[in-house]
Design a protein around this nucleic acid. Structure first.
Length: 565
RNA sequence: UGUCCUGUGGUGUAAUUGGCAACACGUCUGAUUCUGGAUCAGAAGAGUCUAGGUUCGAGCCCUAGCAGGACAACCA
């Protein structure tokens, strides 16, 4: 975990999972032990929803002095790849959590799982069904109508065992038959109607190669894996609620002591203005609506990292949103608040001009370069100061000037005096335009006595604006991001595809920006605050010749609200 | 004509397990400020899905409803 002494303590009351744990400790059912697991399927990149689960599993264990395993739920070789395993490990570590040497795979248990299936067959609790998928599905009935039993349900243990061995030996084609648990076709819970537990797949597995051609289903692997790893609290999302009786049923068949893992469900994270399903995220990537899984607009952990989010901000966010069983929608504003809060304390301040307008200080000597002392981080005096070069010609932000300002605009306009941050008071004397009437340059005078930013006569100015020297600077490309979708809940419209709600202006590239020289040599992912504009970090696309910055998030901006009144 | 889960300010969570609903984000004032940021002070905003009941007292307990969600992959 971060040792940052600025670390924010987010105070949150006990959630329902912690209450369950504490009751368990009181009753000593689990001898006070807490052991959780984070069980991703390696079939895609992790997103902010997984971050919630990671923080929950690792965070809960940490709180109660327990352990957390990382377990890859790799029971479906047709979807899973090693590439995803690596990215998942990187993301969990980046978030600040460590699973020690407890890196497991459901595929570690293929032998034991197979043995267990054999044991069920011998107990008469599993059978091989030769029917095709459609038939089996039809016999399942509906949620409101009971299913009917398979004609193969009554096969003898000997016959089932023989068939299952031959399935394993590869004698049958994919789909020819499956192994089913024999439970209750009339159960009101669909998952108890003789669920399929093994299917034939002649696809090589990313870890076990072609050793197997039969693979266990999720329901037949998850609880058993929990059991073998000694998991006490198996935390998963709400949609598995109806699986719990089956989870418990398998463990009942398996357990030989008082110990049993307990499945606890919580509501998955829904964030406003984004989509969270792997399928939809994959679609965005494949159809090139974004530039890859780590596009800074993506809600993936790799995307957020590239965007400039910090691990601590995500952990705090996760703490703040809490954990319940209520399906809701969290406002992205809360996520944004979490980064601002963290970056405000830690980010190096710097001046950068995104939309440059040239200003000539007509009263300032040509060729002179003065070094102005600037504060690196007002929230942290220990960060010290730096020198920013000031010259006769500078750039300011185009929208920091208005020729005909409204009443509440107190930046630069003809005749008004403003402060150039850490430099001088200046007054605009001339507005230079091209033939089309566009403002191309401003002329200002300066008050030499105000050097450093204060006038000895105590005179006040309404506003302070940022600037960058036209000669002493670093040229940069800046990428501005906006929400990917214009709709609060793009997936929430039954008849309309989520892509219909994409924001066409979610990416804006500004190729001609200027930043003060201080940023020279900064590394990819380094964070800065561009004063008055927002938090930015260095994109990995950055080269020593062209620096590329991503805007993580804007500063809070009461002026823009004022404007829209 | 099913099973399971869930209903608290705009949003998210809390309420010492029955004691006049708290916190965060957001919103709005004001102070302060060399970032229209941050900080500080304050305000508005729910009477807890509905209707009954128990109780001196109910967001918490009981009954009956209503609303939303999950479940019918050889996905996880």
């Amino acid at each position: 975990m971060s040792e940052n002494k600025n670390e924010t303590e987010v105070v949150v009351k006990k959630n329902f999972i912690q209450q369950i744990i504490e009751e368990g400790i009181k009753e000593a059912n689990l001898s006070g032990r807490v052991h959780t697991r984070f069980p991703p399927e390696p079939n895609g990149y992790l997103h902010i929803g997984h971050a919630k689960s990671i923080c929950l599993n690792f965070g809960t264990a940490l709180k109660y002095g327990g352990l957390t395993n990382l377990r890859f739920d790799d029971t479906n070789p047709s979807k899973e790849e090693t590439e995803y395993v690596e990215s998942i490990k990187e993301d969990v570590h980046w978030l600040g959590f460590d699973w020690g040497d407890r890196e497991f795979y459901a595929s570690d248990y293929f032998d034991k799982l197979f043995e267990f299936a054999v044991a069920l067959i011998q107990k008469g609790l599993a059978y091989v069904d030769d029917q095709d998928a459609e038939t089996i599905s039809a016999q399942k009935g509906t949620p409101t109508r009971p299913g009917t039993e398979s004609p193969f349900r009554a096969r003898t243990a000997e016959e089932n065992l023989d068939l299952f061995m031959r399935m394993k030996a590869g004698e049958f084609d994919e789909g020819a038959c499956v192994l089913r648990a024999k439970i209750d076709m009339a159960s009101p819970n669909m998952h108890m109607r003789d669920p399929i537990i093994y299917r034939i797949m002649k696809t090589p597995h990313h870890r076990t190669g072609d050793k197997w051609c039969v693979y266990p289903m999720y329901d037949f692997a998850h609880g058993q894996s929990d059991y073998w790893e000694g998991i006490t609290h198996s935390i998963c999302t709400l949609e598995f609620e109806v699986h719990r009786p089956l989870y418990d049923w398998f463990i009942d068949q398996l357990k030989d002591s008082d110990y049993r893992p307990r499945q606890i469900e919580f509501a998955r994270l829904n964030l406003s203005y984004t989509v969270m399903s792997k399928r939809k995220l994959l679609e965005l990537v494949k159809d090139k609506h974004v530039n890859g899984w780590d596009d800074p607009r993506m809600p993936t952990i790799s995307g957020l990292r590239r965007r400039g989010y910090t691990p601590e901000s995500i952990r705090n966010f996760s703490e703040r949103i809490g954990v319940t069983k209520v399906d809701g929608m969290i406002d992205v504003a809360l996520l944004e608040h979490s980064v601002r809060e963290d970056l405000n304390k830690s980010a190096q301040r710097v001046m950068g001009v995104l939309d440059p307008l040239k200003v000539v200080i007509t009263t300032y000597p040509e060729g002179l370069v003065e070094e102005m002392e600037a504060i690196n981080n007002p929230e942290n005096p220990e960060a010290g100061t730096r020198l920013v070069p000031f010259t006769r010609e500078i750039y300011i932000e185009r929208d920091d000037f208005m020729e005909n300002p409204p009443k509440k605009f107190f930046r630069l306009s003809p005749g008004t005096e403003v402060r150039l941050r850490y430099a001088y008071f200046v007054t605009c004397t001339d507005v230079i335009k091209d033939e089309a009437g566009n403002i191309i340059e401003l002329h200002c005078t300066h008050d030499p006595a105000s050097k450093g930013g204060n006038s000895p006569d105590g005179r006040k100015v309404k506003s302070t604006i940022h600037w960058v020297s036209t000669t002493e600077n670093v040229k940069a490309e800046v990428r501005l991001y906006d929400r990917l979708f214009n709709d609060e809940d793009p997936s929430g419209h039954k008849e309309i595809d989520f892509k219909e709600f994409m924001n066409p202006d979610s990416l804006q590239v500004l190729p001609n920006c200027y930043v003060e020289p201080f940023v020279k040599g900064a590394k990819a992912l380094d964070h800065f605050q561009f004063e008055r504009l927002g938090y930015f970090n260095i994109d990995p696309d950055s080269t020593p010749d062209t620096m590329v910055f991503n805007r993580t998030v804007q500063l809070r901006d009461t002026w823009s609200k004022e404007k829209n009144k």
